[in-house]
Nucleic acid binder design. Sequence first.
DNA 1: AAGGCTGACTTTGTATACAAATTGATGATG
DNA 2: CATCATCAATTTGTATACAAAGTCAGCCTT
Lengths: 240, 240
Amino acid sequence: MSSRWQDEVLADVASGVRINDQHIVERIRQAVLMQRLPPNTRLPEVALGEIFGVSRSVVRKALTRLASDHVITQQPNQVARVSAPSVDETREIFAARRLVEGEVVALLAADAAPAWRTRLSELCDAEAEAHARGDEPQRIEHSLALHHTLAEHSPNRILGAMLSDLILRTSIVIALYKHAGLASCYLEGDHPRLRDALAAGDCEAARAAIHHHLDSLEALLDLRTKSSQIDLAAIFGQSA
Amino acid sequence: MSSRWQDEVLADVASGVRINDQHIVERIRQAVLMQRLPPNTRLPEVALGEIFGVSRSVVRKALTRLASDHVITQQPNQVARVSAPSVDETREIFAARRLVEGEVVALLAADAAPAWRTRLSELCDAEAEAHARGDEPQRIEHSLALHHTLAEHSPNRILGAMLSDLILRTSIVIALYKHAGLASCYLEGDHPRLRDALAAGDCEAARAAIHHHLDSLEALLDLRTKSSQIDLAAIFGQSA
DNA sequence: AAGGCTGACTTTGTATACAAATTGATGATG
DNA sequence: CATCATCAATTTGTATACAAAGTCAGCCTT
């Protein structure tokens, strides 16, 4: 039978005004992805409630979900903040993403349905074009959309969801550790190579392309521990 | 009907243990792991609140986190239920776990620190002994503890956390799809073989052992779609 | 007898009140 | 001047009230 809430949801999408916790989660995730909310940004419940026009109940639910996904960190009686992973955790995030995204593209290469192929190609070209134009924010957006497309069309949806989370966490650590002088994180040819491997249906070439891409990206970061970044809690926390 | 996990919860309340949302999450996770809360079990907020001696606010926070981890499923204005993944999702969970647990044991095999080795061996023997005794619940507990040990000691903590979640989801689908006549899911020799590969530091042998173990486990399930299990939403949902 | 309507009951969604903890500034004290 | 106690302002933790939606049994209609 047709359940009523589904109809309501569709109607709300059409009118576009309904705000719920899922909406807030999505907005914050997007803001973090686009690096408009840098690591350690404070996210007080009342302020968010006023911004989105809801009470703290709804905001708290959204924050709980974001904390579950490691987008923000919460400590008892303290303001929620955008996560700021340590150097060690950063390396582990990249390693996990290599594993998961590698498997996803390998599965995609073996996928017969070509629905995502044209979109992938478009985004590849759009990213190169934005880079040529020197429009870095636009390039980042296309690049993120490309990886998001991989996650969305993953034949294994569990791995797809994991990849979505890892892409977001990667975005956070890039904002944290990107070399100061670096103008762009564009890696010439990486995405086209991936596209070609997928088009050719070559699983291992696709996996290798992603591995190389993520290795290069990680290499662009400054992961030497700076004094301001040293995690005192990790050093002294256990004995406290 | 008063089931056992509820009684244990009441014991906690009596002993004055401080109850917060994390505690409730842990208790429900354990109950699901031990298959004392079967798939589709209703989890009403007020009932849980009375059992744990807290208000709905705390219960709701716990349920939100459990839903984030795919332990329960929530639909608007409806009672939360223990998840009951479809057959397709079950296959994807196993595939994801093969990938993640395979990598974790490969990393562990290369790990020099032997802190976990004795514990692993103990659990291996304890499981075999419980099986020989015909004590299936005890065997399951040791088996789960073994896999949990792998996750806990994963050199890559992101992959370790992912593995913990996947172990729980695997437990759910086993409860759902286990062959009716099957007395035990014990797979003779699988865990000892893994232990030996880890002791020898052979990454690929360890990965192969886990792959074989999970393949065998999946093969024990009855994944032919039954009429009661057909997901109508997946069939008709998109056009609505 | 099958199907649909109704209305009481159950359950969740949201806002809000109050308690408890953290934070930061201010002033006292050695 | 440095250090520490203290207090007000901010912020989160929890409970609760009320509104809105879902559920289901029982009756009515055809």
